[in-house]
Design a protein around this nucleic acid. Sequence first.
DNA 1: AAACTGACTAATA
DNA 2: CTATTAGCCAGTT
Length: 106
Amino acid sequence: MTETESRYKKIYKMVEQIPRGQVATYGQIARLVGLPRHARMVGYALHALPNDNNVPWQRVVNAKGEVSPRATPQYEDLQRHLLECEGVVFSDAGRISLKTYQWKRL
DNA sequence: AAACTGACTAATA
DNA sequence: CTATTAGCCAGTT
């Protein structure tokens, strides 16, 4: 088991704990798994996810409350759709109110 | 080995 | 609100 593999696993486990209808930021996940300032790794880990997985990756957004731009924009639309199905409302600017929806781990 | 890229963030001006 | 800077590191070229 390499370091990076276990990091990825921690990240995935943490993301799995985000409740339906709530969101978390990349930096928030990084801190929760004990890797502050490793926000990019969270993004990288999610990018590396297989197509069939049980990880609610759609609940992870950037610090501005936006869906982060991807190489393939079709997944951005998918992410937004999935979140809307969970009851998350996007504003005109395509942003989420973090104040309302951000996950606070108890 | 070195350079480049990327689903990022926080501090500062 | 925007721009700049520095921090971080796995993969790819």
